[in-house]
Every structure is written in C-alpha cells, then in structure tokens.
Design a protein around this nucleic acid. Sequence first.
DNA 1: GTTCCGCATGAATCGATAG
DNA 2: ACTATCGATTCATGCGGAA
Lengths: 287, 287
Amino acid sequence: MNMELSTRLFHGDCRIELKKIPDRSVDLIFTSPPYADSRKKTYGGIHPNKYVEWFLPISKELFRVLKPTGTFVLNIKEKVQDGERHTYVLELILEMRKQGWLWTEEFIWHKKNCYPGKWPNRFRDAWERLLQFNKSKKFHMYQEEVMVPMGEWARSRLKTLSETDKKRDDSKVGSGFGKNISNWLERTKAYPTNVLHLATECGNRNHSAVFPESLPEWFIKLFTKERDVVLDPFMGSGTTVKVAHKMGRNSIGIDIMPDYYYLVKSELEKTNLVLLEQAGVYAVKSK
Amino acid sequence: MNMELSTRLFHGDCRIELKKIPDRSVDLIFTSPPYADSRKKTYGGIHPNKYVEWFLPISKELFRVLKPTGTFVLNIKEKVQDGERHTYVLELILEMRKQGWLWTEEFIWHKKNCYPGKWPNRFRDAWERLLQFNKSKKFHMYQEEVMVPMGEWARSRLKTLSETDKKRDDSKVGSGFGKNISNWLERTKAYPTNVLHLATECGNRNHSAVFPESLPEWFIKLFTKERDVVLDPFMGSGTTVKVAHKMGRNSIGIDIMPDYYYLVKSELEKTNLVLLEQAGVYAVKSK
DNA sequence: GTTCCGCATGAATCGATAG
DNA sequence: ACTATCGATTCATGCGGAA
C-alpha cells in the first residue's frame, strides 16, 4: 500500500507553534535547544540564570504532545560561567520532574573530535548530556535496532557455547532449550551501553550547533518504528527531521529563525515536497 | 636530603575523624563514597533520599581541611530507583555550592567493561561522574603531567620507537639519540579531555578495588606535586592512599570498616610502617 | 618465550515471589 | 500496599594454563 510520509515544518516560537500539535501524538522528541548565552543572534541569547524559567513552559507543552509510550531526548550541556559549570541543567531536571517527567536515563555523547583549545584551569570539553525523559515507565524501546558488533573474543565465545550446547542437548530432551541455543549461536552482536562514541560534524559553518546525523539516527532507531512521529522543536538546520524522513518516520520541525525555516523548506522541496493548506505546514510525499 | 613520606590512617567515621585534620592542610581530596543503598553491610546503606543530608556535614569538613589552592574530586553515580535515575547527585551539587564549593568541572569516567545485564528499558551503565570542586578559582593544576600520545598512529609509532630505543640503549654510548626521541615524543603528545577511558579492575584475587589505580593516579598527577597531601575519607581497600604513596605524595586515609582499616594497615606494614603516638595514626617512612 | 583459549568476576537492574 | 530477597540476564577484562 502506498502511504504518505509527512514532514511538517512550523515557522515560529515553539512555545506558540507547539499548541498546534495535538495531545499525545508524538512518539519521539529529539532536540538540542539553543545553549544558554550562545547563539545570541539566532535565539536572543537566553541568559543562564533565566534558562530554566524559559524552558519549563516548552517542556510542559512537550509533555502534552508526547504519547504515553513516547520518549523525550534532550541534548544539552551546561556552559562554563565565571570558572564554574553552571547549574541550570541540574535545576532543569529537578523542575521537569515536578512537571511529571520521569528522568529515565542520562546518556553520554562522547565527542571524539571536540573543539580545540587550551585553558590553564580546564581541559577540552569532550562530552554532552543526552537526557532521556518519559511520561511513564512503559515506553517503547527497540533495543535490537541499535546492537553493535561484539569484541574480538566473540569467535572463541561462540565456540565455547556450541560445546556447552551439545552437553545440554544430551541431558535435556524435548525442552525449550533448542530455541535458546540458536539465539546464542547467532549472537555476534551486543547491546550498546549508555555511552555513545560519535565524532562531531565539522566544516559546516552555515549553521551553528550541528550534531552528526548518527546522533538522532541512533535515538530514532531506538525509540521509534517506521511511520512513527518524530518532533524537533528547535529544528535548526533540520538534521533531525531530515534523518527521520530518510528513515521512514513522519516528522515535525519547528524553528523561530527564518533562515533555518526556509533553508529546510527549500531542501525538502528539492526532493518531493507537498504544501498543505496551513501556512508553514508541508508534507513530503513518499511511496 | 632524606625526607619522610607519611601515610596516616584513621579508623572511624570520617565525620568524626576529619576533625583531627588541621584547616587548609590538604592539597587533593579524591574519594568514592559508598553509593546510596549499596554496600549495606559495610556502611549501613544510606538511603537515596537521605544521601544529601548524610553527605553535607562531611563535605563541610572537607571544605575546611582543603587548602585554598586544593581540589576535591568526587567519584559518584546515581542509582536507578523505581525505573528512574535518582536525583541525589544533582541535589548534592546544588547544596555543596551553598557551602562555598565551586563546581569547576565534571569529568566522565567511561568504564569500558561495565557490569553486564539486559533489561527491557535501559542499557548497561558504562560511565560515572568525577565531580571537580574547588574553594577558589585559583587552584593548582599540572596539565603537562597527564598529557597523552596523539592518535592511534602515534601510539603504534611510540611502541616501535621505544623498542628501538631499548635495543640501542645497550650499544649506545652517550650519543644525542635520546634527546631526539624525547623531542619527538613531546611533539606527539596532546592535552587530554574531560572524558577518561579506563577499564575497571577485575580478576585480581587480592581485593576488589572499586576503581582502577589509574583513576586516582591521573588526578594525583594533575592536581598535586611530590610531597603534597592527598586525602581519601572513604579509603576502602586503600587504592588512593597506596597510589599516592607510590607517587611520592603524603596521604591520609579514613575508613569506618575495621576490615578495610586493618587490611590497608597490614599492607603498609609489609613495606615500612612507623607507628605514631596517636591511636590509629601511622606513617610510612620513605627515603 | 609467544599466542591462544577458557574462565571467573564484577559499585547492576528488573520482575517475580515471599513476608 | 509496601519492602525484602532471589534468579535471570549479560559482556569486557586479565589471569592462568595449554599448545
């Protein structure tokens, strides 16, 4: 059957634009909001001390639009201010829990090629937080989709298992053991951990604060299946929505900056964009 | 000159034992306190909800004994409770700042071999926090001491060179060769980042150390020089004090558990222990 | 001496069962 | 209902013994 895959873009402040999205309609929110006091020109430079206050109305709307089985992944890192790490991320987590969010996990994104520099009192910052929030303890997670190749020892391990297998097969007759065995034998992959090793994308000076495609891709694989809905309320150059579309997910992108909005719009038009009746709402048709 | 290197051990609750240590006398505090609700048998199992309340009087004493130029490195990680990451670490950071601590940095310890397991809603936990606190913005940091070889190619290259070096060392007679090598070595070293990659120690039948020796070693190199004073108020099996002593630093270890206390004591006695007048205070003489 | 292989062992977490 | 205990699950590492 021919189904339509939609990519909807909204141009405006997500505090307002989010209200156009129905309750419990989104499977995954993946976003990297403007960092405190940075990207001043694009987002008006939220002061670190005002960051929590600014973000809470947004996270409340995000709570509303997320399905009970959905997940919110927030890519964020505190800035250094006056020689100290600022505490707005810590405070934000505490306040979001008061809104009903469950702080399920904190993934670490290890940036293998982090920004260069040298300071007398600190080293280069090579990691960012990927905070996982949920509305309920029962959320969808497709762990098999992100399994990774095992270490070197996999071969010998498999050998051992096949021998153990034989022994058990002799002693046990007609039990459900065979199924387990085949599971083990085909195992050449392992589940990942909560530490992600990805290089940052470099050389793209058109847009600030870009993350590599593999970052949203990993979480989209992990927390959604095809035809699910992915939302990025701080779309920026559109990495999340473009990856989502490529992966057969419906997506929604919001950005306040005209440059970003029209950039993503035109890029989607290059492929197969369909304008919907609402202003600023587009759908990309896909076979 | 013959100087004495001292390793002082205290047996008791660090909330009390710390009072025996003078104000502003410690250069580095490196410790890994008992995790909430774990090590029940050893520390009485502090409940996660009581953790901050329990730790704050200790951090207050630590603040007192640390030199203004010193550093406090706290190895900690929140437990999962009821499907969520607990918030006691976040709250602890916020409360410690109220005590006057500066939250300078958060290092990530990536545990390459983390505990195995599989669950429907989370992956294996492969990282811990190493929170850096200071009393002032002007603290001592010896960055050159922890420089690392650049990249993989450099590492293999270094191997080759060191082997070649050895071979020629036998036949070499005071040529300028060594100097060339050291020059080359300096060029291939880079400052590290705030992400540390270390495996936990396992299979060592002696004692199960909580962290590998290289962890305290790295921070001792970074934040102290020889003859400085290193303190671990939750000594455990004594990794920190033993590494500190090996590196020519004076050290102080405290533990409430008799088993740990007498274990470390006897290990130090095997080398060259000197009993001081105070009960529970020992010094290891070193030439 | 090397290299390879087998094995024990973790600062874990969930879900079920029991009190 | 709420807490305590137990079994099942899982994989990187370093050691020791064997080829």
